[in-house]
Amino acid sequence: MREAQQPFHFVTASYVTRISDQKATNLCELSRGLDNSSDASVFYHTFQSLSRLHFLTEGFSNDFAQWVLAACNRAQLAEQLAALDIRDYLSLAELRGDLRRILAEYCQANPQHAEQTAFEPFYFCEGIEVTVPLGFEAWTLEAFRDGLERLSHASIYYHFIASRLRLQLRTNDFSLWLSTSIGLDDLAQRANRIDIYTNTLESARAILVGMVEEELSR
């Protein structure tokens, strides 16, 4: 049984949502709101939305796209916003920049829609994070698999999705550990390719556990 150079520390994150004073009632206001909103707000409406509605794989993956479709009835713009993949970003500033660019281009090309009042406002919120260790760690691949099976959805989200921004790498906590601490580069890469948009957190966990078991059976 191969032992890791460093253990994997299982952690969970819990979030309280803070309601900001900003809201948007049309596309222009959404664009302006993005200019003024905090990074925590951009994070909440993009990264965290994947966690909040993780059990739905149809529909849009971030709150901005969902609102543009449901409240503004602008399917094309919604698709463009939804196409932004958080895995491509190392900073929220970059992500915010692309969201703004897409909105600005649409508003410029479609001024008749830009100030049309939405069915319901968009409320900017922020996620306030508290992290705590879960009190168990993995030194081996077996223990890692056992740990994965014990995790809450919030913990999977923290290690597998939110970690991308924290690490400032195009990877996640699980893949990083598999690669750097236990030397399983191929498994790490395959884990990193699990599609977080078309999977629920539960199905992502099942795929990852399956990959680890396959590795263990070799």
């Binding site: 969970t12 705590v132 260790p133 879960l134 009190g135 014990r150 809450s152 959805h153 913990s155």
Partner: peptide, 8 residues
């Protein structure tokens, strides 16, 4: 997992 998280 959910209950363990509360305890943590």
């Amino acid at each position: 997992g959910e209950v363990a998280e509360l305890r943590a």
